[in-house]
Design a protein around this nucleic acid. Structure first.
Length: 246
DNA sequence: AACACACGCAACCGCGATGAG
DNA sequence: CCTCATCGCGGTTGCGTGTGT
């Protein structure tokens, strides 16, 4: 086999897409789907590389994409997911129907990042860093053994590579919510998060079959199951709003 | 009105993961 | 088991537009 360049530049067009190109791509995908992106431009008669076609479709032409501004709820969700997942834009996008990873990434860099780092911002009525700290404190308090390795654990919170090593709290959501009653806003956030599909939680825990999750040895010295992990992150997200009341 | 700067967004680039041969 | 094609992801760039001076 001979590897051809990833993006053959000879004779291929780059830069902004024209209406005609969009139309050709949309028509082709409507008729034949997009089984093979690399072959698609040739078959469709486009002078673009497959990568460019895929990007154009997934980020712009796909009819499932929701256009328009992000709602406050969406922005809040992005902030919370980013705090937990880091720059895993595709994972965040999977939880926001109709939004692309590229779009979310752009919104983060242009709006939300500033908001997070500028606590006086009027939209961020509460100090985000304080909120983040509270989440970390909650994570810490939630661990079965929370005394000795706190700095190590906290550093894991933002390191998505070690997500699967994080463990669970000892309290279920219902137990916690009985301590701090939720207001309507909390309920809405909870409702939104409960609508998330299970795939998200299993992705966080890198588990394929949640019914038969292996018990794993965490790097900081105690065992936890992936089911516990899912419960843990669920609690982190659902408690995000409530933590402000601490 | 003209210019400079900031912002938002679409697109590109490069790399890692995955699977086929 | 190795090589390579393909895909998907995250980081970055560049252009068009809006805003301030």
């Amino acid at each position: 086999m001979v590897r051809s360049p990833c993006c053959e530049r000879m004779g291929l067009k780059r830069g902004p897409w024209t209406r005609e190109e969009d139309q050709i791509l949309v028509n082709y995908i409507k008729m034949y789907g997009h089984g093979n992106w690399r072959a698609l431009p040739k078959l469709a008669g486009l002078l673009r590389c497959g990568k460019s076609c895929r990007l154009r479709w997934t980020n712009y032409l796909n009819p499932d994409i929701k256009r328009g501004n992000f709602t406050r709820e969406e922005e809040q969700a992005i902030i919370q997911f980013h705090a937990a997942l880091g720059n895993r834009w595709s994972a965040i996008a999977a939880q926001l129907p109709g939004r692309t990873d590229n779009e979310i990434k752009n919104v983060w860099h242009t709006h939300l990042k500033k908001r997070v780092h500028e606590p006086e911002d009027r939209y961020q009525a509460s100090n985000f860093q304080q909120e983040e700290k509270k989440i970390e404190e909650y994570i810490e308090l939630s661990r079965p053994s929370s005394s000795s390795k706190s700095s190590e654990i906290n550093s894991d919170v933002h390191d998505h590579t070690s997500d699967s090593q994080l463990s669970s709290p000892q309290h279920s959501y219902s137990e916690i919510s009985s301590v701090t009653p939720m207001d309507k806003g909390d309920m809405q956030v909870l409702g939104n998060i409960q609508e998330m599909d299970d795939g998200f939680w299993s992705e966080i825990c890198s588990g394929e079959n949640s019914g038969e999750l292996p018990v794993m040895e965490a790097s900081y010295g105690y065992k936890s199951s992936m089911n516990d992990d899912m419960q843990f992150w669920f609690n982190v997200f659902t408690r995000g709003e409530e933590l402000l009341e601490f």
